[in-house]
Simulated scan of single mutants.
Amino acid sequence: MGSLSLNRIDHLLWLGRYLERSFTTQRFILSTYDRVADRALDDLAGDWRGQLADLGFRCETETPLEFFQRCLFNRDNPSSVACSMDAAYDNALACRDALGTESLGYIQMAVNALEAAGASASPLLDLQQVQDNIMAFKGCIDDFVTDDAARCLVKCGMTVERVDLCARLRYRLADIPHEVDRLASRLDRTGAAYSRPAFKELASIASSPSFPDDADDALLSRAIACVNGIFS
């Protein structure tokens, strides 16, 4: 780990976070859109607008299509999938020597697929390719990133972001305990400084027998604070 500077550690963590933000946010947006595409915004059941607002999205138009296109493709929206993919690519370039050209290639292909989706009248196929290339990147780093610490930093960033988003969006909460277990298996392998108290509290929340059934807003807010405090 001595070969990785603090700046490199930060780039690897945020590469993982921005890639996961692109992946999970896109999945959430598309699954939500599937439920609302044929209904008027003001008549929708559930709190999907409130959930997206937690990520910084603001619904300023009257149709779901216009709103979700902005969530996916509008770079003026800092929480959009497009902005997250751009940030992931920038962080990947900053540590390309640690990642290798094979791994970096999948991020470039994901960016290209997102560009194609934004220009397409039928974007779903290209959006699926964004997802596929992010998944391929996750597998590729196991084969081509030889530095275990660098690989674990990217994966820790992904897991931190996934826990944050699941809690923030009230989405797939049952996955959080498994993600926390993954994080536990990788933290010490990164060689990076992290907050053991923050992780311990997060693990306590996730391992509670009543989680996620009894997870209220206060508990989820605490989980978000803990997971974001691990590497702060």
Rank of each mutant, 00 (worst) to 15 (best):
I176W: 04
A223I: 03
A167H: 01
A218Y: 05
V145T: 10
C156T: 06
L93R: 14
L127I: 04
P212N: 08
L114G: 00
A88H: 07
N228F: 06
D213P: 03
F137Y: 02
D143K: 15
S221H: 15
A98S: 14
R189H: 05
R162H: 08
R168V: 04
E179N: 08
L220V: 04
Q128D: 11
D181G: 00
D126W: 08
A215C: 12
G105W: 09
I176C: 07
I205Y: 01
A117K: 01
V130F: 00
P209E: 11
R222L: 12
R186A: 05
F211H: 08
D97T: 14
L99N: 02
L169D: 01
A198V: 02
L125Y: 11
I134N: 02
C226T: 06
Q128N: 09
A94E: 15
C95I: 10
A117Q: 01
R170M: 05
V145E: 06
E161W: 02
T101V: 14
T159Y: 05
D213Y: 06
P197Q: 10
L220R: 09
A98C: 15
D213F: 06
L183N: 00
T190R: 03
K155V: 09
A117E: 02
R189Q: 06
R151C: 12
V180W: 02
A198P: 02
L202F: 00
L153D: 01
A121P: 06
Q131E: 11
I176F: 05
S103I: 02
I224K: 15
V154N: 04
S103C: 15
Q129K: 14
L173M: 13
V130A: 00
T190E: 00
A203G: 07
K138V: 09
K200L: 09
L99S: 04
T190M: 01
L124Y: 13
A150D: 03
L125M: 11
A193W: 10
V145C: 06
A174P: 05
P209Q: 12
I205P: 02
P212Q: 10
A117D: 02
R182T: 10
N91Y: 04
A225F: 12
A218S: 11
T101D: 14
D148C: 12
A223H: 04
Q108I: 13
E201D: 07
S208Q: 11
P197A: 06
A98V: 12
A225E: 09
R168Y: 03
A119V: 06
A198D: 05
E102C: 13
R182V: 08
Q131M: 13
C156D: 04
I176L: 07
H178M: 08
G191E: 02
R96N: 08
